[in-house]
């Protein structure tokens, strides 16, 4: 990590700013708006996922080291699997007359 100390940690600062915006944004939407409960849950859920991504890439050294590429592939594949299993199951089980 020698070379990182020599230059300005631009990605960390950006990540920090983005995190702040997303956090306060979520707080604002949850506390200060009069949207319906469902809409609020969707918006802050989306913001949370975005923030998790930013944390992974900007702070958690995901792409660094010799296994950087592997880590990214693992995370993307894991997310893909989770989405397929959870969202796919909900969709299949709640669509059409299977649900009625």
């Amino acid at each position: 990590m020698e070379k990182h100390t020599n230059r300005f940690p631009i990605s960390h600062v950006l990540g920090f700013i983005f995190s702040l915006i997303l956090t306060f944004g979520a707080a604002y939407i949850a506390l200060k708006t009069s949207l319906s409960f469902k809409v609020i849950m969707w918006i802050i859920g989306t913001l949370a996922v975005l923030q998790a991504g930013i944390q992974l890439f900007m702070f958690m050294h995901l792409r660094e080291g010799e296994d950087g590429k592997t880590n990214v592939i693992n995370i993307v594949y894991g997310v893909f699997m989770a989405v397929v299993i959870v969202v796919g199951s909900i969709w299949v089980m709640s669509a059409g007359h299977a649900a009625h």
Partner: peptide, 15 residues
């Protein structure tokens, strides 16, 4: 592709 094992379950045309 897993739903192709139970199309007749009736998840509807979209699925």
């Amino acid at each position: 592709v897993w739903v192709h094992h139970f199309y007749t379950m009736g998840s509807g045309p979209a699925v």
